[in-house]
Amino acid sequence: MIGDLLLAWISEAGNGTIADFRARAAWLARTENLDLHESATGRWLRDASALGHCEVDWKHGKWSVAPPVITRLPLADGLAVLVGARRQRLLRAIDEEGVYAEQARRLGSSRDIPPPCTILMPYERTRDLEEYAAALGAVYSGCAAAAIAALLGTTAPAKPTAPPAYDSPFEHLSSFSPQTWAPTLPSRPNPSEGLHREQVNGRWQHLLRREGGWYATDLSRGVFAELARRGETVIRWRPDGDHRTRTGTVIVDWGASLPPLQARALVLCSGFVPRFGSAAETSLYDNVPREIAARVASSLGQTLQTSS
């Protein structure tokens, strides 16, 4: 499928620009007669990053593929997932070395590029995963989801920046779901507290207004900083079974996209990008232990709510 072809291409290319990736992905989609949403190529890169296949520098317009890694899924009854670069020689090694692996897919919207298939590896002992990694030329990382969650710090913007230019297009975030931006004047005295965006060289840059100062941020971190200021909660955890169950589903309201590391911590609990609840306007992350969900929420200034 096209998602697997794109992962194979970025694996062989190693790195590149986002603009070049968008052009190549759009061309490949046309060869498959896919009617994509205009932001589909960017969403595929975001999902590939959350799955651990690549790193994306949105500010500077660049991406680079990640090395191949085998990581355990938390509390998943002996399942690990292979992430990172997926070169042809690695796929051949899976067959030649007799490594047992299963491919699984989760399809999304017909107007999105499907993510690459997930390669799952059942195991009985940690030693099995270490041997698989050695045979494939990969790295065994333990449980990446738990390790990432343990390292998460606060994402509140703390870098002071210059005020917006008086003659630039300038808007203020007025509501979250859906996200609504209201035009305002950067020259007005005592600008409103909250998240703003300024258009510079045709691109939006985000700024946070706090106690008379301006702070640089990106959209996802800025949104959560503003949610924290308003005391609003958009992250919930629903246990898979009764109250003794340790895993569950993390539910994030639309309009509050997670920063890359927080998204990766949740995605690597299952090896799949989130499902979407269109009726409830939510993103759903599966097989997430409550302690990982709580660390992700805390890093975003959120108080994790438990739903039934």
Rank of each mutant, 00 (worst) to 15 (best):
S109V: 03
A25Y: 10
L227H: 03
D4K: 10
A145F: 05
A50H: 02
E226R: 09
V296H: 04
S307D: 08
F170M: 08
A228D: 07
L219I: 08
L120E: 00
G202H: 13
T306F: 05
L107I: 12
L28K: 13
V99A: 02
K59F: 11
A66M: 10
W27T: 09
F21I: 04
G213N: 07
L185V: 06
A25K: 14
P239S: 14
V99K: 07
R295E: 15
R264D: 01
D253H: 13
Y100N: 03
Q88N: 04
S220Q: 14
R229S: 07
Q262E: 15
R209M: 09
R244V: 02
K62D: 00
L73C: 08
T31W: 13
K62H: 05
A263E: 06
R197Q: 10
P68Y: 07
L173I: 10
H37N: 13
G255M: 09
P115V: 15
A279M: 14
A144C: 05
H172K: 07
Y100E: 10
R105I: 06
G3D: 04
L284W: 10
A279I: 14
Q88K: 14
E232W: 05
E171Q: 14
F170G: 04
S49E: 15
L36R: 06
H60I: 05
T126L: 05
H206G: 00
Y285R: 01
W181D: 02
S192H: 10
L266C: 01
L300K: 07
S11C: 10
S64E: 08
R238E: 13
G98K: 11
R210Y: 01
A150T: 11
T154M: 09
M1Y: 07
A149P: 02
R127L: 09
P186Y: 11
L261M: 14
Y123R: 08
A23R: 15
A135F: 00
S220M: 06
N15S: 15
R275D: 08
R210F: 01
T71D: 02
P115K: 09
T217G: 08
S174R: 15
R238I: 14
S141K: 11
R127P: 00
F176H: 05
G137Y: 07
G222T: 06
L207Y: 02
L261V: 01
W27H: 11
H172Q: 07
D112W: 12
L284A: 00
A165N: 03
T126A: 10
S257N: 07
R72P: 00
G84M: 08
G202T: 11
E198N: 07
P239G: 06
S177W: 12
G248M: 12
T155N: 06
I10W: 04
A25S: 10
S278M: 13
S49D: 02
L300E: 06
R246Q: 10
D240C: 05
L185I: 00
V56Y: 07
A147T: 11
V234D: 01
F276K: 12
T180F: 08
L268D: 00
L207F: 07
S220G: 02
T17K: 15
A280C: 02
S39D: 15
F224S: 01
T249C: 12
Y100T: 09
F170P: 03
E232F: 14
A182N: 05
Y285C: 01
A297I: 06
